[in-house]
């Protein structure tokens, strides 16, 4: 129980910290967004600046009221954000939470699937490599993986886009579903969604499964060298049981920590990936916001992506205690 409280507390604290950083960036730093927005608004009103109106607008967009003392601004901002109010987009003139709320499921879908596929492939490959440790297959797979790992995912994305998207036109080059398809629970819709996600997911998977495979290979090799495995064989247990309950289970457990680390990496990467594939997720909107200097959206995306990661890690961490008896109730390190 203690452990749960601790972990949840830590997660909330992390989100809190990010929101604070975001407040600091918006408000406190000279030349920061709030100041810029203000200057912009004053300029827009061409001399006839109605300071009160400007301040109101600034507050509407950023949740910050420039006329109040800093600490009050801070409290207001925090309260607003934790109530789900991320301000209003300058560009779309819509609440940020509405825009991003629409986009978030797509990002989670894209990145979650990539992560899942990449882990499945990596674990399977790693296990096979460990089994044939030292063979030609092992050596060449290792070299191949190092090479794949050297490719940035966005380069893989562009290459895939170039060949399969533009040259051969096998896959669509952007969007999250076909233009003629209505979002519904129909097969056609799902088909279209999957079809549109193939390239982004592939570019992520191709460049990331190798790391998992290498880690899995190492784990499996060390489990194979353990005494308890030898004893299990001596005990005359059936091979199936040894493979599943001894080797697989113990080699997979440490991978869970790797999964937690990857959540952050993958979600962070969504910004670049979604831009390349014009895939309307949080990252895409974040990128658009850069061009239009739409600070509320920018900050909102940062907060939202962090929250998604924190929740992902929290779930992973809390379930870890369920599957590994050794950490149950203990003061375990997060990573």
């Amino acid at each position: 129980m203690n452990y749960f409280i601790k972990r949840i507390g830590q997660s909330v604290f992390t989100i809190f910290a990010v929101v604070s950083i975001s407040f600091g960036l918006i408000r406190l730093l000279p030349g920061g967004p709030a100041a810029q927005l203000r200057a912009q608004l004053i300029q827009d009103s061409a001399g006839a600046a109605d300071m009160e109106r400007v301040n109101r607008l600034v507050e509407l967009h950023t949740n910050i009221q420039p006329s109040k003392p800093v600490w009050e601004q801070y409290v207001d901002y925090m309260v607003a954000v934790f109530q789900g109010d991320l301000g209003e987009s300058l560009w779309h003139n819509e609440p940020v939470s509405a825009i991003l709320g629409e986009a978030l499921p797509w990002t989670v879908f894209l990145m979650g699937t990539s992560l899942f596929i990449s882990f499945v492939i990596g674990i399977a490959l790693g296990a096979v490599m460990a089994y044939y440790e030292g063979s030609n297959f092992d050596v060449s797979a290792t070299s191949g993986i190092i090479l794949l790992n050297s490719i940035p995912y966005y380069i893989a994305a562009v290459v895939l886009l170039y060949f399969l998207g533009y040259q051969m036109q096998v896959f669509p080059t952007g969007g999250h579903y076909g233009s003629g398809v209505e979002p519904s629970l129909s097969i056609g819709f799902f088909r279209s969604v999957l079809y549109h996600s193939v390239l982004p997911i592939s570019s992520m998977v191709i460049t990331s499964f190798g790391g998992t495979a290498i880690a899995m290979r190492g784990n499996a090799i060390s489990v194979l060298g353990n005494d308890y495995l030898r004893v299990a064989r001596l005990r005359g247990l059936r091979d199936r049981r040894i493979t599943m309950e001894y080797v697989a289970r113990n080699a997979l457990l440490p991978m869970y920590t790797g999964l937690m680390m990857s959540i952050g990496m993958v979600f962070g990467g969504s910004v670049i990936l979604e831009e390349i594939f014009t895939y309307p997720g949080v990252g895409y909107y974040m990128f658009q916001a850069i061009g239009s200097r739409d600070y509320p959206v920018l900050m909102g995306s940062l907060i939202l992506i962090t929250t998604a990661i924190v929740i992902g890690i929290l779930i992973a961490d809390l379930t870890y205690g369920k599957i590994d008896p050794r950490v149950r109730g203990e003061d375990r390190e997060v990573y």
Binding site: D227, Y228, V231, R235, G236, E245, R249, N250, P325
Partner: peptide
């Protein structure tokens, strides 16, 4: 046959019992 003989007829105890058990199984 060997699998059946082991432990049913001849069993073995090692030094370091701690590492003789699967850590994730009760």
């Amino acid at each position: 046959e060997l699998r059946q003989l082991r432990w049913e007829e001849i069993s073995m105890v090692f030094q370091g019992a701690m590492s003789s058990f699967n850590p994730t199984k009760d």
